[in-house]
């Protein structure tokens, strides 16, 4: 499937727009004068090193913290599907996949089953969340977010703990979901060198917006080079799924992939899930 040519989002009123927002904690500035907007159906990737204010930005977009300066506008009645980073479920909290998907809004068994099938973990309803592999866990989080019929999906480091084929498969899924539903996608990543191919716009964040634009343009931007260094010589992998061999991330983990593709960074096969 080649999606090199993406339909650009229409220039309607944005779903979310921030204007010059400032946020600080205890005298430390986390975000300064950040303005950005996400339009309907658009895929935006925010990349930035650790401590660049990515989490703060997400909290602000969700409405968990109020900016001290500037403003955030959300489209009226905006529905957000949020996929958190590392959802740590306390070991003392028993939670089946089915129950998790119905938090806080109950969904019918049929709806739940169909959604699990769609995201590639069919029949996982009665499994404990703690027993899922990293890839399965991520897909269940996505399923829960999609059940809210969101106009925008916000994903915080969604590929952390996934191996390379896992990342490719997950990105592919996101892309398909966007096509099917037309929802916007905002993805946040600290991985400076791998960005989903279907991304319409990349925003480099480091307390402020360093640069912004189409992936190829950002790659060339001196700000990007300054921020992320020349060491990788712009090894800015646009993650398309040229991994056409299918690794079913939905099933199990810990199998040996043994693939020979050249990748830009080491990866491990740790699927982090709470034992």
């Amino acid at each position: 499937m080649n999606v090199a040519v993406q339909a650009k989002a229409p220039a309607a009123a944005p779903l979310i727009r921030t204007r010059q927002i400032d946020i600080g904690y205890a005298g430390l500035v986390a975000l300064k004068g950040v303005s950005l907007q996400i339009a309907k159906g658009e895929i935006v990737t925010v990349i930035g090193p650790n401590g660049s204010g990515k989490s703060t930005l997400i909290k602000a977009l969700l409405g968990l913290i109020e900016p001290q300066g500037g403003s955030i506008e959300r489209a009226p009645g905006l529905t957000i599907g949020y996929v958190p980073q590392n959802l740590a479920i306390d070991a003392n909290l028993p939670m089946t996949v089915a129950r998790f998907l119905s938090l806080p809004v109950r969904h019918s068994a049929g709806t739940t089953a169909a959604m699990l099938e769609r995201v590639g973990v069919p029949g996982a309803q009665s499994k404990q969340m703690a027993d899922l592999s990293g890839g399965q866990f991520q897909r269940v989080l996505l399923a829960r977010a999609l059940l809210a019929n969101p106009q925008i999906l916000i994903l915080d480091e969604p590929t952390q703990g996934l191996d390379q084929p896992g990342i490719a498969a997950f990105y592919k899924l996101i892309e398909e979901v966007r096509k099917e539903r037309g929802c916007a996608v905002l993805m946040v990543s600290h991985d400076l060198h791998v960005v989903m191919r279907a991304t319409d716009r990349v925003i480099c964040l480091n307390g402020h917006v360093c640069c912004e634009g189409a992936p190829d343009a950002v790659l060339e931007a001196p700000e990007y080079r300054a921020l992320f260094g020349d060491g990788t010589r712009g090894a800015f992998a646009l993650y398309q799924h040229h991994h056409d061999h299918s690794h079913d991330q939905g099933e199990g983990h810990g199998h040996d992939h043994g693939h020979q593709h050249a990748h830009y960074h080491d990866h491990d096969h740790d699927n982090d899930h709470a034992g």
């Binding site: 949020y82 959802l87 977010a145």
Partner: peptide
Amino acid sequence: TAILNPELAVSS
């Protein structure tokens, strides 16, 4: 939901 994750709660 709030116990599970505050961000998740807010988004709902």
